[in-house]
Design a protein around this nucleic acid. Structure first.
Length: 493
RNA sequence: GGCGCGGUCGCCAAGUGGUAAGGCCGAGCUCUGCAAAAGCUCUAUCGGCGGUUCGAUUCCGCCCCGCGCCUCCA
């Protein structure tokens, strides 16, 4: 099913397809700056991009998609962090790169095929700057920094529709006045930053003296190296649209003399308490904080996909509760299907399906689902289809509970439902068979209380049992009875 | 000031020129020592005012409110 995706440049939905004759779809996604844990807003973008990646694999084949996502491991923030903590830059970036990888894995994001880092692509960046200098698109300032000359690129501003930055912003630009002193024009941006004392040991040699690359050039250089001069899709969060992506276009097209990206896609922000996350508001949640409140990473993934990726999404703890419950509903359905087919849930849903597995004959639910999600990644609409399908099938199952003969007759249909569900979950990247709660150490006192209550219950001392359950609740634990035993879990906050 | 997005049930959130998916929560029912879990059932006329139309939540205009970008930022 063709994938249509909104293109930020033409501001219209366009079909995705590989432009090169080799049929490889070239996909570049701006990655994180590794100086601190990524927050859930960052992960919204990465999760959405992961869904795009999965859809691309489904459409073109797993070996026909090349997904590159960079790591920004040298910039003001990473350097400051290293300086503040008195350790080498690479130490800091290694720590947070590892953390980022662990979080992505917990969120079931497929790793990109290439994950280039800025510091290991200095030469590529210098080479590009060199070409820009030769072509007259860049100039060296008195302090040794090199700037891109925005006025040399006539198409500048096509993406953001900002004809050159508005000069009347006043306050905002005054803040960077010190930097602007060296530039010929406030709109110009740094390609190479001359070494400053604050940079410490983090400097590389270049034809223009020691220094470090500017932020924008890294993506242009790494994209060129790993995907070539022209790529099929370039993505990132909306805040990168200007100036980052605008600058990338300017650098790459001036350097390479050809179209940089055929398609641009930007996902919107996650809002917490109605506002964008920021340090000053103190509403930047890393994954760990969500997990510490008792929620599963998979529920976070679900919550991040609850809204249309190109619309701001309000995030609250309520949405985590909703996500956890919704996920549970899907899980219950999956388990019922497995029972009907006499399969074990763990084996059937443990792994994401291996592509290609798309059934030749699509069921109507899967067809509708793929139709919605392939139409500009409409995840909320896709969830709607998914749940409507579940409800229909579940009702059928309920209506035929007393009719085992019908089960035997419908084995094929059950299997289709399982296959459909597995494929939908693959696209969404939802793995049902992950821990639903945090692995918390259970204090022995709590275990003792629970055992005591269970004994009281078996002895039909219901008053005593109820009192003991109240004690457990007060201690922050939830004890639920089943026929053959009980479950004991920490309450979610 | 420039550019852009949005206001749909208590919360989150799709969608359509002909009277509104889904999830969560809530209520009722079934089940059940209780509670829970689970399943079933039920719950909206789409920010305001005009206009176009046989008919608008969906198109146009104005207004009100909210958010984002323009500075490092997913």
């Amino acid at each position: 099913m063709p994938i249509r995706l909104h293109d930020s440049l033409t501001r219209t939905p366009r079909e995705l397809k590989p432009a090169q004759p080799d049929g490889i779809f070239r996909f570049y996604n701006c990655g994180p700056t590794v100086y601190a844990p990524a927050h859930i807003g960052n992960f919204r973008t990465f999760v959405v991009n992961d869904v795009i990646r999965r859809l691309l694999e489904l459409e073109f084949g797993p070996d026909k998609v090349k997904h590159v996502r960079n790591l920004t491991d040298v910039d003001d923030k990473t350097i400051k962090r290293a300086r503040d903590e008195g350790r080498p830059l690479s130490d800091v970036t290694k720590q947070w790169t590892d953390k980022f990888h662990a979080d992505c894995a917990a969120l079931n994001c497929l790793p990109p095929h290439v994950e280039p880092a800025a510091t290991t692509h200095i030469k590529e960046q210098v080479d590009m700057i060199d070409v820009l200098m030769q072509k007259g698109n860049a100039y060296r300032a008195a302090d040794g920094s090199v700037y891109f000359k925005v006025s040399s690129f006539g198409d500048y501003g096509a993406l953001s529709r900002v004809k050159e930055r508005e000069l009347q912003v006043g306050s905002a630009l005054k803040a960077t006045a010190a930097d602007a002193d060296e530039k010929e024009d406030v709109s110009d941006f740094a390609l190479w930053k001359a070494h400053k004392p604050d940079d410490g040991a983090n400097a590389w040699d270049s034809p223009w003296g020691r220094g470090r690359p500017g932020w924008h050039i890294e993506c242009s250089a790494m994209s060129k190296k790993h995907l070539g001069d022209t790529i099929d899709l370039h993505t990132g969060g909306v805040d990168l649209l200007f100036p980052h992506h605008e600058n990338e276009i300017a650098q790459s097209q001036c350097c390479n003399g050809t179209t940089f990206a055929h398609h641009w896609y930007h996902s919107e922000h996650l809002l917490v308490d109605g506002k964008k996350m920021s340090k000053s508001l103190g509403n930047m949640y890393p994954l760990d904080e969500i997990v510490a409140k008792g929620f599963s990473p998979m529920a976070l993934r679900y919550a991040l996909l609850m809204g249309h990726p190109r619309k701001q999404l309000s995030f609250t703890l309520d949405s985590m509760h909703a996500a956890e419950s919704a996920l549970n509903k899907i899980r219950g359905y999956a388990k019922d299907l497995c029972k009907l087919r006499n399969l074990t849930f763990e084996e059937t849903f443990t792994k994401s399906p291996t592509l290609p597995l798309i059934p030749q004959v699509l069921g109507s639910v899967l067809k509708d689902f793929l139709g919605r999600i392939s139409d500009d990644i409409n995840t909320p609409a896709a969830f709607g289809i998914l749940f409507s399908g579940i409800e229909r099938n579940w009702k059928w199952i309920g209506d035929h509970a007393d009719d085992p003969t019908s089960w035997v007759q419908n084995q094929k249909e059950f299997q289709t439902s399982i296959d459909e569900l597995r494929l939908m979950l693959f696209v969404l990247g939802l793995n049902l068979n992950t821990p639903t709660t945090l692995e918390v150490e259970r204090p022995s006192a709590i275990t003792a209380l629970a055992e005591k209550r269970w004994a009281a219950k078996l002895a039909k001392d219901f008053a005593g049992a109820d009192a003991l359950r109240k004690e457990l609740t007060a201690a922050g634990w939830s004890m639920l009875d089943r026929k053959d035993g009980y479950s004991l879990e920490p309450l979610k906050k």
